[in-house]
C-alpha cells in the first residue's frame, strides 16, 4: 500500500511539469502579446513611444524563444515563488491572486462536502426503495440538474431571488465587508452569502452522485452477503448501512477525483455570473486583455489544486478499500 501511495505521489511531479507547460503554452497562443495591446492603446492615446515598448519587451523577454520564456517563468516560480507580473494591475501576480484562489478553494471544498451530505442519503434511500415516488423525483431532478449548465442555473436563481426577496444576491460579501480585513464577522458574512454558489455548483455534482450511489447500492443489495447479513439477525438498517453501503462507498469515493475538475470548471463560470471575488472573473478579464502571466498563473494553479484534490481522493481510496490496499502491496 505504501508503495502505491509513494508511486502515486512521485507521479505527481511530472504531471505538474506537464500542466505548467500546457498552461504556459495556452497563454502563449494568442497572436501578439500584452505589449501589442499596450502599443495599440498608446497609439490610440497618441503617446506611442517605441523605446518604452522595446524596453518592456526586453525586460519580460518577449523576444526570446518559447522554451526560454517558459524556463524563466518556471525558475522564478520555483526559486522565489514569483508567478510573474500582471501588466494590467501593475503588481506581481503572486500578490494579486492569493485571496481569489483561496476563496475558490474554500467555496469548492464547501460545495464538495455539501454535495456529499445531500447525495449520499438520497442515493441510498433511492436504492433501498427503488421505483418509489421519492426515487422518481430524485431521478428526474438529477437528470435536470445534470443537463443545466452552471451559469444558467446561477442566472435563474439570481432572478428568482431578486423576484422573491427583491435583493441582488450576487457576490460573496456584503458591501461593508468586501474590502474589509478578515474578521469573524467577515467569515460569518461569507457563510451567509455562500448558499447561492453552493446550490449552483452543487446541483450538477449532486445529481450525478445520487445516480451513482443509487446504482452502486442497488447492485450491492443483490449480492449474497446482504442475505447472509440478514441471516445473522442484523436489523435491516444495519444490514444496509454496514454492508452494501459500505461497499458502494468505494467506487463512490473514487468519483471525488473526477468531480473535482468539474467543480473547478463550474466555479469559474459561476463566479463570473454571480460576480464572486473568485478566480473566474479575474481569469476571464486577464485572458481578454492578454495579461498573460496572470491568466497563466490562474490556469496553472487551478489545475494544480484539481490535481491535489485528485491525489488526496486516490490516497483516501487506497486507505479505505482493502481490496486495492492488498492488491497493490
Amino acid at each position: 500500500m505504501t508503495g502505491y501511495i509513494v508511486r502515486r505521489i512521485l507521479w505527481f511531479i511530472p504531471t505538474l511539469l506537464a500542466v505548467s507547460l500546457v498552461s504556459f503554452a495556452i497563454i502563449q497562443l494568442p497572436p501578439g502579446d500584452y505589449l501589442t495591446v499596450l502599443e495599440s492603446q498608446m497609439g490610440a492615446e497618441g503617446d506611442y513611444n517605441p523605446e518604452v515598448v522595446a524596453r518592456l519587451r526586453e525586460r519580460f523577454g518577449f523576444d526570446q524563444p518559447f522554451m526560454v520564456q517558459y524556463g524563466k517563468w518556471m525558475w522564478a516560480m520555483l526559486a522565489h515563488g514569483d508567478l510573474g507580473y500582471s501588466f494590467e494591475w501593475r503588481v506581481p501576480v503572486s500578490s494579486l491572486i492569493g485571496e481569489y484562489l483561496a476563496l475558490t478553494v474554500i467555496v469548492t471544498a464547501a460545495t464538495l462536502i455539501a454535495t456529499w451530505l445531500i447525495a449520499l442519503p438520497i442515493g441510498i434511500y433511492s436504492a433501498v426503495r427503488p421505483y418509489s415516488i421519492f426515487d422518481y423525483i430524485a431521478t428526474i431532478l438529477g437528470f435536470i440538474g445534470k443537463a443545466t449548465p452552471n451559469f444558467l442555473l446561477a442566472l435563474v436563481l439570481m432572478w428568482w431571488a431578486f423576484d422573491t426577496f427583491g435583493a441582488d444576491v450576487s457576490g460573496l460579501f456584503s458591501p461593508e465587508y468586501a474590502n474589509a480585513p478578515w474578521s469573524w464577522a467577515k467569515v460569518r458574512d461569507l457563510i451567509a452569502h455562500m448558499w447561492l454558489p453552493l446550490i449552483v455548483l452543487g446541483t450538477s455534482g449532486a445529481a450525478s452522485l445520487i445516480r451513482q450511489m443509487r446504482a452502486n447500492v442497488l447492485d450491492e443489495l443483490q449480492k449474497p452477503y446482504v442475505e447472509a447479513a440478514r441471516a445473522q439477525g442484523l436489523p435491516e438498517w444495519k444490514v444496509i448501512l454496514r454492508y452494501p453501503v459500505r461497499v458502494a462507498l468505494n467506487p463512490f469515493l473514487s468519483t471525488i477525483g473526477s468531480s473535482i475538475p468539474e467543480l473547478f470548471s463550474g466555479a469559474v463560470t459561476t463566479a463570473i455570473v454571480l460576480n464572486l471575488p473568485m478566480a473566474g472573473p479575474m481569469l476571464l478579464r486577464a485572458l481578454v486583455s492578454q495579461d498573460m502571466y496572470l491568466a497563466g498563473s490562474f490556469i496553472f494553479l487551478l489545475s494544480v489544486f484539481t490535481l491535489i484534490g485528485t491525489l488526496i481522493s486516490d490516497i483516501l481510496l487506497t486507505l479505505v478499500d482493502p481490496r486495492i490496499r492488498f492488491e497493490e502491496s
Partner: peptide, 12 residues
C-alpha cells in the same frame, strides 16, 4: 450459503 466468497463482506 453456497458461495462463501460472495456471502462474506469484501470490505470487513
Amino acid at each position: 450459503f453456497q458461495e462463501p466468497m460472495a456471502s462474506l463482506s469484501p470490505v470487513h
